[in-house]
Simulated assay, not measured.
Amino acid sequence: MTGRATAFQALHRPGRPLLLPNAWDHASAAALAARGHPAIGTTSLGIAAAAGKPDAAGATRAENIDLARRLRDLPVLLTVDVEGGFSDHPAAVADYVAELAALGVVGVNLEDGRPDGTLAPPELAAAKIAAVKAAVPGLFVNARTDAWWLGVPGPREEAVRRLRAYREAGADGLFVPGAPDDTIGLLAAESGRPLNVLHRPGGLSLAELGRLGVARVSTGSLLFRAALGAALDVADALRAGRDVDLPHAPSYGWVQELTGRFGAECSG
């Protein structure tokens, strides 16, 4: 395991959760790095929407590679959302993740939700995890189950069954977006691996989730949607003839300076 991979693993401390903000382009990732976040994830919705493609449809294979290349020089640890790995062949998923690892990526999210709204068979999802770990042993595989996200019957039992299978396949972390607050403590105790949950506005705080044993809290698409909403609010206000006060908007110079500090290399 490389020093960067070890450092990323060490950030997952049950009870003291890592806040993992999710970026969608070079500017958002560089800004988060400048604010001192030691690790950044990507948001599949943000990347897909920015490219004019649907999320969770296996459509952003090339965009993920391109963004990883652009972010490789940022002073952060990067984990990439690869949806279901862009293939139902475990060896192909492993080859793809190895490409990302070669660009300096230290982790991936690998999910069992499918574009048609169903869950992949747990045996297939586990085989993908095992193949990735065999190809890139030091990479942090955060195995995600969409049992709640997709609203399957009996989600708690299904999630626990899948988390156990993914742990046995070699997953380093387990991710349960959409899990109700009253199940998180149980999942943390059952998981046997660092548990990742999705931040929910109005839900439990970072400290409260830590007390339940959570090791990582992701923002998912929230930052992307908040940025899009702020842009719409400003445009609507200007169209309506209202003045806008943006005390927290970064200056032109600050954004320009980010590019100078963390310029993206697009070739190679």
Rank of each mutant, 00 (worst) to 15 (best):
residue 2 T to M: 06
residue 3 G to K: 14
residue 5 A to Y: 12
residue 6 T to G: 12
residue 13 R to L: 11
residue 18 L to W: 08
residue 21 P to Y: 06
residue 22 N to E: 08
residue 22 N to P: 07
residue 26 H to D: 07
residue 31 A to I: 14
residue 32 L to N: 00
residue 34 A to N: 10
residue 38 P to T: 08
residue 38 P to N: 04
residue 39 A to R: 04
residue 40 I to C: 01
residue 41 G to W: 08
residue 46 G to S: 10
residue 47 I to G: 02
residue 49 A to Q: 15
residue 55 D to N: 03
residue 56 A to I: 08
residue 57 A to P: 02
residue 58 G to D: 03
residue 58 G to Q: 04
residue 68 A to W: 09
residue 69 R to E: 07
residue 70 R to I: 06
residue 75 P to K: 10
residue 82 V to K: 02
residue 82 V to F: 02
residue 84 G to W: 14
residue 84 G to A: 14
residue 85 G to H: 06
residue 88 D to T: 13
residue 101 A to H: 14
residue 101 A to W: 14
residue 102 A to H: 08
residue 104 G to E: 12
residue 105 V to C: 11
residue 108 V to L: 09
residue 110 L to M: 11
residue 112 D to H: 08
residue 114 R to M: 15
residue 115 P to D: 13
residue 118 T to C: 11
residue 119 L to D: 13
residue 125 A to Q: 15
residue 128 K to L: 05
residue 129 I to P: 02
residue 132 V to H: 04
residue 132 V to Q: 02
residue 135 A to L: 09
residue 135 A to Q: 13
residue 140 F to S: 07
residue 140 F to I: 09
residue 148 W to Y: 10
residue 148 W to H: 03
residue 148 W to F: 10
residue 151 G to N: 04
residue 154 G to M: 03
residue 156 R to V: 14
residue 161 R to G: 05
residue 163 L to W: 01
residue 163 L to E: 00
residue 167 R to T: 05
residue 170 G to I: 04
residue 172 D to S: 07
residue 174 L to N: 01
residue 178 G to V: 04
residue 180 P to S: 03
residue 181 D to S: 09
residue 184 I to Y: 10
residue 185 G to I: 05
residue 185 G to F: 09
residue 186 L to A: 09
residue 189 A to N: 02
residue 190 E to Q: 09
residue 201 P to D: 03
residue 202 G to I: 06
residue 207 A to C: 06
residue 211 R to T: 15
residue 212 L to S: 06
residue 216 R to I: 01
residue 218 S to V: 04
residue 219 T to S: 04
residue 219 T to M: 02
residue 220 G to V: 00
residue 220 G to S: 01
residue 223 L to S: 03
residue 223 L to K: 08
residue 235 A to W: 12
residue 236 D to M: 13
residue 240 A to N: 03
residue 240 A to V: 06
residue 240 A to F: 05
residue 243 D to P: 10
residue 245 D to S: 15
residue 246 L to E: 01
residue 248 H to T: 14
residue 248 H to A: 15
residue 249 A to R: 15
residue 250 P to G: 10
residue 250 P to K: 12
residue 258 L to W: 07
residue 262 F to T: 00
residue 267 S to F: 10
residue 268 G to M: 02
